[in-house]
Nucleic acid binder design. Sequence first.
DNA 1: CGTTTCGTTGAAGAGTGTCAAGGCCAGTGG
DNA 2: CCACTGGCCTTGACACTCTTCAACGAAACG
Lengths: 272, 272
Amino acid sequence: MMNNPNINMATLRVACSNCNLRELCLPLGLSLKEIERLEELVSTRKRIKRGEALYRAGDKFEALYAIRLGFLKSAVMSSDGREQVTSFHMSGDIVGLDGLAGMVYSSDLIALEDTEVCLLPYQKLLEVNQSMHAMSLHFQRLLSMEIVRQNGVMLLLGSMHAEERLAAFILNLSQRFEQRGYSRSEFVLRMTRAEIGSYLGLKLETVSRVLSRFSHDNLIIVNQKHVQIMDFEGLRAIVSGQAYQHHDSSKDNVVPIAPEKHNINELLSDES
Amino acid sequence: MMNNPNINMATLRVACSNCNLRELCLPLGLSLKEIERLEELVSTRKRIKRGEALYRAGDKFEALYAIRLGFLKSAVMSSDGREQVTSFHMSGDIVGLDGLAGMVYSSDLIALEDTEVCLLPYQKLLEVNQSMHAMSLHFQRLLSMEIVRQNGVMLLLGSMHAEERLAAFILNLSQRFEQRGYSRSEFVLRMTRAEIGSYLGLKLETVSRVLSRFSHDNLIIVNQKHVQIMDFEGLRAIVSGQAYQHHDSSKDNVVPIAPEKHNINELLSDES
DNA sequence: CGTTTCGTTGAAGAGTGTCAAGGCCAGTGG
DNA sequence: CCACTGGCCTTGACACTCTTCAACGAAACG
């Protein structure tokens, strides 16, 4: 409808308005005209194979990427070679935001399976931004959402036990799969136990053990990378610290307030 | 110089160009004219007393804040009342960025000492953004820097031992004080042991013990909240995992690459 | 000056990490 | 088609870091 004449067939093939992921890439209300402009900057797609890097820390920042299909991890590395997974990404996510700070990516982005992404060259993004206010706003909101999400991860890493971390992790994945139209109760983990462990601040053996425990308690069924959730409520109870308690009673030396407190649970469950 | 006539004396008093923190608030090259426009949106200052909140999770997002003087903490809270400190802020930092995502703040911001901030009302920011491209860019970069910083915190929380976390924490504080013109080797902690512990994912007793150990090893001198760094290299060695090793030799089952790898240490040391 | 909050230190215990051995699975080549 | 290989996962025993519980001392506040 009303195609801009200077959009040729090649760009049309990757047009956002035809993309079945547009609700995820473009969550905020852009008008048709604005979406058309946005399409101008989605120049190409790119495929990367499992194990390959879309970018690495230190690479020049030239583009953001919208994931069309696939599963990836972000990771930073300390000077002594320790790798720390900072997030997992799937279709609909926008990645590369950390490169904006210093015009150089600060993390590695590695495909965990064969992956297809849309390129959003930063130069073009700037040109569009310049004249399009809503786009700029959307972009900023995207960045802020990532900050909020990371707050949730810090809560997880800083104050939760192994069981709570894994329960939160599984529920988070479940919700993200559901948002994308997949089953929320049955899915395949695309990452290894070691990568889950790195993300959650645990060793791979602990991940394996806890998953086995969940399985034994009929919360989930695990077969290697295949996971089926049997008891959502049970998992939620664990995340809230209502199960796997270690000492019986009122441990709350934190503020006893928060009757209708805005809590962080939603932050843990919602990614992009 | 060349004062815009519709800037009255009241706004001039808070003008950014007179503010000795401008290098921190405005790290990116804005022209004089652009800075003038920016000043229009710095409407007022606000003072909050120690222990009071600048905002709380759930509050409507209406402004960002530039810290002029003081020390604050950000914290999120889980549904069962656990508080997790996600960052500490000091003069020159811009806070409130997490509110942009949902137009509602997602964390609490509490003053650890009497604090003075500049208000940046979001509505005004939008108006300026609309016509000022550089400002919008600066804003986005600010958001991205926060993401990069949080990656560093996740590395810390996910893969470091208590000694490494505290060494990194002290060096980070030192660097930030130095950037602001204070001594890099001697400063006062404005937060309690419990707050440090929450931020680093440790209990307050562990914080206290590790600080005592550092003191005993002549790395630092601690007297309650007063800290003096005696051995920067020693602390850096601990952060790099070169000390306080727990099993002797080649534990590196991580990739043996990274000869000139872009590492995360800088991320841990540089905040805003 | 009493009260409260914060900090230090010790002893014991819980939760994860470490090390090691073996099983499962996909891919490869005979 | 099957054995071989290598990567990934599981499980056990043990070690160790960190937490928990407790008591006491120091500083901050009204």
